[in-house]
Design a protein around this nucleic acid. Sequence first.
DNA 1: GTCTATAGCTTGATAGAC
DNA 2: GTCTATCAAGCTATAGAC
Lengths: 229, 229
Amino acid sequence: MTFPGSRVIDMASKKHRKSRKDRIIEVAERLFAKRGFYGVSLRDITNEAGVDVALVKYHFGNKQGLFDALLQRRADILNRERSEALKRVLERNNPASVEEIINAFTHPILNEIVSEDESWRDYFGLLAQVNNNPEWGGKTMSRYFDPLVQKFIDALRDALPGSDEADIYWCYHFLSGALTLTFADTKRIDALSRGVCRSSDFESVHARMVPFIAEGFKKICRKTEEAKP
Amino acid sequence: MTFPGSRVIDMASKKHRKSRKDRIIEVAERLFAKRGFYGVSLRDITNEAGVDVALVKYHFGNKQGLFDALLQRRADILNRERSEALKRVLERNNPASVEEIINAFTHPILNEIVSEDESWRDYFGLLAQVNNNPEWGGKTMSRYFDPLVQKFIDALRDALPGSDEADIYWCYHFLSGALTLTFADTKRIDALSRGVCRSSDFESVHARMVPFIAEGFKKICRKTEEAKP
DNA sequence: GTCTATAGCTTGATAGAC
DNA sequence: GTCTATCAAGCTATAGAC
């Protein structure tokens, strides 16, 4: 070894200087979030990351492979956090309340989006576009999220005994639309409300969203019995 | 006049054979709905419409001009229908109920989307993508829809006396997210529910959406007083 | 892992004939 | 209004050197 201690230095520098693969995936996430899959070229990404285009092929196969990899990366994290949140809620109280279940689904997003790691905001901006894409959005969202969503549906069914199957699925659909738009941070609400609401005030909107959605679920799925508090 | 009666024939053929300008705008609407602004090239559009690329410049200036023209066209129709629906509701009952106001906002969409004119479905698929675009979605939606949305906000404020300003705007935001995803018809719900719900069953989902949203509004905006039936 | 170099094609835009 | 023809720039993908 010509440079004694170089291994330590390497490990230290590894923490500070990210791999080119990571740089590509991070820049891609930010750009795809802004303009969608078709609105970003590989050169947009690799130029901003300061690497060569050919590296995309080496690390991800092609543009689609890069897109899939970056969706998968945070979907895994989000699914794990949601799964743990649901588990905690059900351990404490089974069946849990509708509010608790909705909160287990949405609160992990709030945690991530208010964290120091600002790149989570990009991810949710991207998810909003994917969720609302009529061509491949449904399939893509299903692929990454539906296995766990099924467990949330099961919990909601237990929380709303005697409810109609279709009612629960449709209500989840309303939740999904409100949720993805909310965390997409499009700034529309800022202009519409002339500054009364700020699109990036995620705590405020989350505090309203959970009871809003929970109340809708109860209204639609509890037709047969009296609404309980 | 060399061809007596040619004017009558022209008028008849005008009804059947659409102008090239109209063909461009119709094809563009369908393709933009599928893949968004960046996912469609002018050649995709003009090839499918059977016209030359140069016509886009002549009729619309450029790609952006074409996109704006096609958004504006149906926004005008939708705004007029919503405005009339709101007027009817308020004439019958002022202040109106939250359900009636929400319905005046959403039912015109239902009418259009179940009509024979299938191209309305494309338009709402496109609107869902615009609404959820973090880069220019907020501005674009505001431009075409917010003036009338303000009137709906006013009506909701009257229907929910003593409510907080921010609450009403945030609830509108949840409505907007649920509404645009619902009529985007992404087919996700079909897979998730294993056929129990069909994404294109617009009457079913609309019948659930209006009370779902209305109940959320009442829950969030009526904190200070008792909820009335 | 990373780069150079390039093939082969598509893009938005437009000048100018008819 | 509509077309032909063309441009300069951009695109994804990949072969092959290091």
